[in-house]
Design a protein around this nucleic acid. Sequence first.
DNA 1: TTGTTCCAGCTTTTT
DNA 2: GCTGGAACAA
Length: 721
Amino acid sequence: MDVTAIIDSLNDAQREAVSAPTRSMLVLAGAGSGKTRVLVHRIAWLIKIEHISPHNILAVTFTNKAAKEMRSRVEDLLNISARSMWIGTFHGLAHRLLRQHNKEAKLPDTFQVIDSDDQLRLIKRLMKAMNIDDNRWPPKQVVWYINAQKDEGIRAKHIQETGDLYQQQLLVIYRTYEDLCQRSGLVDFAELLLRAHETLRDNAELLAFYRARFKHVHVDEFQDTNTVQYAWLRLLTEGQDNLFVVGDDDQSIYGWRGAKIENMFNFQQHYPNHLLIRLEQNYRSTGNILKASNALIACNDGRMGKELRTDGGDGDLISLYSAFNEQDEAYFVVERIRKWVAEGNLRSDIAILYRSNAQSRQFEEKLMATGTPYRVYGGLRFFDRMEIKNALAYLFLMLHKDNDSAFERIINTPTRGVGAKTLDDIRQLARSKQISLWQAMIELLKAGHFTPRAENALKGFVQLINSLGEQAEDQELYEQVKYAIEKSGLIEFHKKEKGDKGEARVENLEELVNAARQFEFDEDNEENFSELDLFLAHAALESGDAQADDFEDCVQLMTLHSAKGLEFPLVFMVGLEEGLFPSQQSVDDIARLEEERRLCYVGMTRAMKLLYISYAESRRLYGKENHPRPSRFLKEIPAEQMQEIRLRASVSKPVSTNTKAKVILGTSGRYQLGQRVRHEKFGEGVVLQVDGEGSQERVQINFANVGMKWLMLSYAKLEVV
DNA sequence: TTGTTCCAGCTTTTT
DNA sequence: GCTGGAACAA
């Protein structure tokens, strides 16, 4: 292969980044400027032109999806298998490191990764055992505190005791939690990263080995790295000048999760020899969308500075719709979708983006009513579902009897007659003798401590878990899974659940068997972990997509956060209201407000051709009627790029936006907002909206007797009262 | 052990 | 206004 295949398709800036001689590099990649492309081509360049072995390349991403995509794109481009290349998420790579060097990491070789849900349960249990008031110290806040410390690389022992009782208690819980995890070999997400960092830092030999191995280190979405992640990267690359990072400070939207946008500025200090490259050529959006986005983000201070441009035309103006209320907003969006589809376009090219998940409901209802297929992103992921976690807990416990989280989860699921009293006794003994719940149960059984009923139940449980373990020895992975969910009675248990909920659960369990069948066991995985072990770790680290890819053509609904990295020809950004977007909690803090603005920027730059922005003048939130002001972000978008859409024939009250153009629909002017009319069947009502033109013209009327209705003017016989 | 009722809480969530 | 979880009663 020659050079041309790798760099011909690139623009000048991209080409410079891809083909530069080895040194640290910061690629400031604007939205839609081809940042993944640069990473992929850079790696291809190293392998093909610089003859670097894939073995010597490390690439880190944040999501499993991004990691997979990057690997397959490199492989496609070069037509080789790049298996020996380390590409993965920070968490995945940290896990791999800890597995391979568990001794150096001071972890038992049976250590287990726990997800955030397990972590919360663990903290709750711990606090109960410590008799801590969970009103003063809500477990969620405790978890947040602990993770925030770990993200900063701070252990309990590093924290100074203060006189503050609240802080003091948090610290005590943190310390106890650390001990408990260490004793039972549990590793939460933040711990994976922190432990991986410490392990390298404290083992000169290991560190030297990995520094020698990873001759080139690449990072995607660098603006989202937290303190520990960056420290880990620095450790690996210190003195080597080989850290290649790609990021966009304007798209940093995870500060609240510990991401440090400062890492981008610090990088420039820490790697003084670095080359800075800006990718500002945008291949996604029209000129108007880019101009508007540029203007909005320019309102932020402390940026590295970047302006997106396109060679394409200006395209359509951004449309702004001021809705009467949230119902009306949803109606408007769905109506536009109907038109778009009627014009022969794909539903899957449409995204509805909102600030908070709760906003999806309105749109779902309206979409459902019009029979428009849609898909909501977010929500529970496959491996997070209760039934799946229960099934996995059986497998966990069969493998590691001392895993207390698994024990707690399934000791009475399905119900087998083990009540609170029985469980309390077990917990008590476990705590006082510092042994696992399983061991405590065995001891109490031996001592004949329980009532006959409880004893039977527990004996049956022990037998069940043991028999699963015995069976497993000569079974394939998927057979083990299948056997476990059947023998455990989980299938039966969920079948009994009323409604289609239970049905869905059983289906999910069957899907789990499938997932096990498809699980790719990495035989040459340097360490001799069992297939089941790796499958369970996989389940914790990769939560799995919410739904398996549904190939039906449907409208995409998601939060602005989950839209990052995606693009759609038609985008609706909804709920642009003060208090909602920017969110109430952010308006008093400049740093958080700027993050909201970046979020808005991320949303706008998802749009390729058409962007609709809307807000409601009145919105029901938590059961209360609100009259929010339009979002300040609307005023930051230049009027030249916007047009205001009006469905209503008459404008009830002027809105405080600065749009130049106005598009007024439903112009016949026969009916006006607020006009009283009479329908021969429905009785009297008030006109709420007018929409459409000519024979398509329709009015929405709120009837005193039958509520809101949409009527076609050409059919409905209306009388002005 | 199960069903009921009451009550807080309520942005965003790559792993 | 809805939901999940905890506290109750049966």
